[in-house]
Protein backbone atom coordinates (compact mmCIF):
# COMPACT_ATOMS: atom_id res chain seq x y z
CA UNK A 1 0.00 0.00 0.00
CA UNK A 2 2.73 2.40 0.99
CA UNK A 3 4.50 1.86 -2.32
CA UNK A 4 1.37 2.64 -4.30
CA UNK A 5 0.51 5.73 -2.29
CA UNK A 6 4.02 7.13 -2.36
CA UNK A 7 4.20 6.51 -6.11
CA UNK A 8 0.85 8.27 -6.45
CA UNK A 9 2.14 11.23 -4.46
CA UNK A 10 5.20 11.28 -6.70
CA UNK A 11 3.17 11.26 -9.91
CA UNK A 12 0.85 14.01 -8.67
CA UNK A 13 3.77 16.09 -7.46
CA UNK A 14 5.74 15.65 -10.67
CA UNK A 15 2.75 16.60 -12.84
CA UNK A 16 2.04 19.56 -10.62
CA UNK A 17 5.63 20.76 -10.57
CA UNK A 18 5.92 20.45 -14.34
CA UNK A 19 2.80 22.53 -14.85
CA UNK A 20 4.01 25.04 -12.27
CA UNK A 21 6.97 25.85 -14.49
CA UNK A 22 4.88 26.31 -17.65
CA UNK A 23 4.25 29.72 -19.17
CA UNK A 24 0.41 29.73 -19.40
CA UNK A 25 -1.48 30.80 -16.30
CA UNK A 26 -4.10 28.10 -16.73
CA UNK A 27 -1.35 25.50 -16.71
CA UNK A 28 -0.03 26.96 -13.47
CA UNK A 29 -3.45 26.87 -11.83
CA UNK A 30 -4.00 23.23 -12.77
CA UNK A 31 -0.48 22.53 -11.56
CA UNK A 32 -1.26 24.12 -8.21
CA UNK A 33 -4.37 21.97 -7.86
CA UNK A 34 -2.39 18.79 -8.60
CA UNK A 35 0.36 19.85 -6.25
CA UNK A 36 -2.16 20.50 -3.50
CA UNK A 37 -3.50 16.94 -3.90
CA UNK A 38 0.02 15.62 -3.60
CA UNK A 39 0.83 17.72 -0.56
CA UNK A 40 -2.47 16.91 1.17
CA UNK A 41 -1.91 13.21 0.62
CA UNK A 42 1.65 13.59 1.84
CA UNK A 43 0.64 15.32 5.07
CA UNK A 44 -2.12 12.77 5.52
CA UNK A 45 0.35 9.91 5.03
CA UNK A 46 2.54 11.30 7.82
CA UNK A 47 -0.04 9.84 10.21
CA UNK A 48 0.63 6.40 8.68
CA UNK A 49 -1.97 4.39 6.82
CA UNK A 50 -4.80 2.87 8.82
CA UNK A 51 -7.59 0.89 7.20
CA UNK A 52 -11.07 0.72 8.70
CA UNK A 53 -10.44 2.61 11.90
CA UNK A 54 -11.58 6.24 11.57
CA UNK A 55 -11.02 8.46 14.55
CA UNK A 56 -14.54 8.09 15.91
CA UNK A 57 -14.35 7.28 19.60
CA UNK A 58 -16.58 5.14 21.75
CA UNK A 59 -18.47 7.15 24.30
CA UNK A 60 -17.27 5.25 27.28
CA UNK A 61 -14.46 3.02 28.38
CA UNK A 62 -10.75 2.82 27.78
CA UNK A 63 -9.41 4.29 24.54
CA UNK A 64 -6.40 2.68 22.92
CA UNK A 65 -4.94 5.34 20.60
CA UNK A 66 -3.04 2.78 18.54
CA UNK A 67 -6.30 1.30 17.30
CA UNK A 68 -7.35 4.49 15.48
CA UNK A 69 -6.10 6.64 12.67
CA UNK A 70 -4.05 9.65 13.73
CA UNK A 71 -6.46 12.61 13.81
CA UNK A 72 -3.85 15.37 13.67
CA UNK A 73 -2.90 15.12 9.98
CA UNK A 74 -6.54 14.75 9.14
CA UNK A 75 -7.43 17.95 10.92
CA UNK A 76 -4.55 19.72 9.20
CA UNK A 77 -5.53 18.47 5.77
CA UNK A 78 -9.19 19.33 6.28
CA UNK A 79 -8.40 23.00 6.71
CA UNK A 80 -5.81 22.78 3.93
CA UNK A 81 -8.45 21.58 1.48
CA UNK A 82 -10.69 24.54 2.17
CA UNK A 83 -7.85 27.04 2.10
CA UNK A 84 -6.49 25.64 -1.14
CA UNK A 85 -9.90 26.20 -2.69
CA UNK A 86 -9.77 29.82 -1.57
CA UNK A 87 -6.27 30.37 -2.94
CA UNK A 88 -7.23 28.72 -6.21
CA UNK A 89 -10.12 31.15 -6.48
CA UNK A 90 -7.85 34.07 -5.71
CA UNK A 91 -5.29 32.98 -8.24
CA UNK A 92 -7.97 32.42 -10.85
CA UNK A 93 -9.29 35.94 -10.38
CA UNK A 94 -5.80 37.44 -10.50
CA UNK A 95 -5.20 35.43 -13.63
CA UNK A 96 -8.29 36.60 -15.49
CA UNK A 97 -7.78 40.16 -14.29
CA UNK A 98 -4.19 40.10 -15.52
CA UNK A 99 -5.37 38.66 -18.78
CA UNK A 100 -7.85 41.54 -19.08
CA UNK A 101 -5.14 44.10 -18.42
CA UNK A 102 -2.34 42.67 -20.52
CA UNK A 103 -4.24 40.80 -23.20
CA UNK A 104 -2.06 37.76 -22.69
CA UNK A 105 -2.39 34.63 -20.62
CA UNK A 106 1.37 34.31 -20.24
CA UNK A 107 2.34 34.32 -16.57
CA UNK A 108 4.58 37.35 -17.11
CA UNK A 109 1.88 39.30 -18.94
CA UNK A 110 3.79 39.22 -22.22
CA UNK A 111 5.10 36.56 -24.52
CA UNK A 112 8.68 35.49 -24.12
CA UNK A 113 11.06 37.51 -26.26
CA UNK A 114 12.23 35.26 -29.11
Amino acid sequence: MEIVLSAAIGVLAASGAWLLMRPRSFQVIVGLCLLSYAVNLFIFAMGRLTVGAPAIMPKRGFVNPDAYADPIPQALVLTAIVISFATTALFLVVMIAARGFTGSDHVDGQERAP
Binding site: E2, S6, A13, A14, A17, L41, F42, D70, I72
Partner: peptide, 26 residues
Protein backbone atom coordinates in the same frame (compact mmCIF):
# COMPACT_ATOMS: atom_id res chain seq x y z
CA UNK B 1 13.27 18.75 -12.78
CA UNK B 2 9.66 17.69 -12.31
CA UNK B 3 10.51 13.99 -12.39
CA UNK B 4 13.26 14.59 -9.85
CA UNK B 5 10.81 16.49 -7.69
CA UNK B 6 8.21 13.72 -7.87
CA UNK B 7 10.83 11.09 -7.10
CA UNK B 8 12.02 13.06 -4.12
CA UNK B 9 8.48 13.41 -2.78
CA UNK B 10 7.88 9.68 -3.33
CA UNK B 11 11.02 8.66 -1.51
CA UNK B 12 10.33 11.00 1.37
CA UNK B 13 6.74 9.81 1.72
CA UNK B 14 7.76 6.18 1.49
CA UNK B 15 10.55 6.59 4.01
CA UNK B 16 8.29 8.18 6.56
CA UNK B 17 5.40 5.82 6.01
CA UNK B 18 7.53 2.73 6.56
CA UNK B 19 8.88 3.99 9.86
CA UNK B 20 6.95 3.09 12.99
CA UNK B 21 5.00 5.98 14.42
CA UNK B 22 6.02 7.17 17.81
CA UNK B 23 3.38 8.38 20.19
CA UNK B 24 2.18 11.81 19.11
CA UNK B 25 0.01 14.51 20.50
CA UNK B 26 -2.73 12.84 18.49
Amino acid sequence: IAVAFGTAMSLLAFTVMTRPQLSTVG
